[in-house]
């Protein structure tokens, strides 16, 4: 167990199996919402291309306020569109150079 989790006096930092922690987080959020903290939520971006951050946060309000990216993506998902644009541009360059000799 990491020292920070061991030493945390309020048990705010926890360490353990991800699935157990997820259940705990859900329970905690439900409890908070029951007490009127309607903006309590879990930050755990497993649905996107990053596939989770190996850490789960129970937060109040928007993720942005904690500098968490609201919908993080792995930059390399854009490889295809970037290379496609490069390919099209490169073909145009070939065309222009050929035209330069023809005209």
């Amino acid at each position: 167990m990491p020292a920070c989790a061991k030493a945390c006096p309020t048990r705010s930092i926890r360490f353990g199996e991800l699935e157990e922690l997820r259940q705990e987080a859900h329970a905690r959020v439900e409890e908070l919402q029951g007490r009127g903290y309607n903006d309590a939520q879990i930050y755990d971006p497993t649905g996107s291309s990053v596939g989770g951050t190996h850490a789960i946060f129970v937060i109040l309000g928007q993720p942005e306020a904690y500098n968490f990216p609201p919908a993080p993506e792995v930059p390399t998902i854009h490889l295809k569109s970037a290379w496609s644009a490069a390919l099209v541009s490169a073909l145009m360059v070939v065309l222009v150079v050929c035209l330069a000799f023809v005209l």
């Binding site: 930059p75 390399t76 854009h78 490889l79 569109s81 970037a82 290379w83 644009a85 490069a86 390919l87 099209v88 541009s89 490169a90 360059v93």
Partner: peptide, 25 residues
């Protein structure tokens, strides 16, 4: 001549990532 633009386009830097189709041009 073109891979360098892809190099910028597939980073997390917003201005590069959002211009990934313009930088190659």
């Amino acid at each position: 001549a073109s891979y360098t633009s892809v190099l910028l386009g597939v980073t997390a830097i917003p201005v590069w990532s959002e211009n990934r189709k313009l930088v190659p041009v």
